[in-house]
């Protein structure tokens, strides 16, 4: 095994190990989406029952529409937060250790991103299983596609989180960023509502949001009701994640501490 792949693997290992150890975080990350599904979803679902929902196929339930979105939402949140914790690592510890090592920095940071993405996907998988049990009408055969969408989502947003973390220098920015980025990104996607009836400006922004493609991909698998062709979504997500990971590697190569 070369130093490059060794570094990559060991960083994946580290992130997974940390994720599994942080039980409270795991539980929290699963409970939160189930609340969205169980309370928010059931609430709106009862309100919409029996009505024609514009943008959805006839007879579709709102809960069935929302479930794939919530699975992706949980991996989005998990991945982005994991990526942003690089700030913590950078300022107070472990990343310094990586910075003075002869190992490839690119391998280190990409390994970290993949490890975080796998952790977030694991979390999404648990939500997915919960959703399949709780929500009627989801197609279990679509689970692999949904999981792939979840993995790509977390890769994209871990990559974005890391990039943001490497660019900002203080912890103060952390909470501001989280609330400033996460909420709009979720509401400017198709997690909660279909794109079809949206005003054109909102739709235009949503079409530039990677989350939209991921949710649509998961929805195509689980509910058979995507609005975008799955091939386009897949290519878009893969390309965005490659670009972001490459940017992470490039920025991290040049990182110094002050």
């Amino acid at each position: 095994m070369t130093l490059w792949s060794g570094t990559l693997m060991v960083m994946v290992y580290r992130q997974l190990k940390r994720f599994i150890r942080a039980r409270s975080r795991v539980v929290g990350s699963i409970v939160n989406p189930l609340i969205w599904l169980g309370l928010f979803g059931i609430g709106w679902s009862s309100f919409f029952r029996g009505r024609l929902l514009p943008g959805l196929p006839n007879g579709a339930s709102y809960l069935g529409f929302l479930a794939p979105g919530v699975v992706i939402m949980s991996t989005f949140i998990g991945g982005f937060i994991a990526g942003i914790t690089v700030i913590w690592d950078k300022e107070f510890g472990f990343l310094k250790e990586l910075l003075v090592a002869p190992a490839s920095r690119a391998a280190g940071i990409v390994g970290r991103a993949i490890g975080d993405a796998l952790s977030a996907t694991l979390q999404g998988a648990i939500v997915l299983v919960g959703a399949i049990f709780l929500v009627s009408g989801l197609n279990p055969l679509g689970a692999p596609l949904a999981l792939l969408a979840a993995f790509l989502t977390s890769l994209v947003f871990t990559g974005l989180g890391i990039l943001v973390a490497l660019k900002i220098s203080s912890m103060e920015g952390f909470h501001l960023l989280v609330s400033l980025i996460m909420m709009p990104v979720m509401f400017l996607s198709d997690i909660f509502y279909p794109l079809g009836p949206l005003p054109s400006w909102m739709k235009a922004i949503a079409m530039m949001n990677p989350l939209t493609y991921a949710v649509d991909l998961a929805r195509a698998g689980l509910a058979g009701a995507g609005e975008i062709s799955p091939e386009i979504s897949l290519v878009a997500l893969i390309m965005i994640s490659i670009v972001l990971l490459a940017a992470d590697a490039k920025v991290f190569e040049k990182t110094t501490i002050s």
């Binding site: 107070f92 510890g93 250790e97």
Partner: peptide, 12 residues
């Protein structure tokens, strides 16, 4: 290198 502040992973 032994840094002034701890640089090990506390969760491991």
């Amino acid at each position: 290198v032994v840094f002034q502040d701890p640089s090990s992973d506390r969760e491991l």
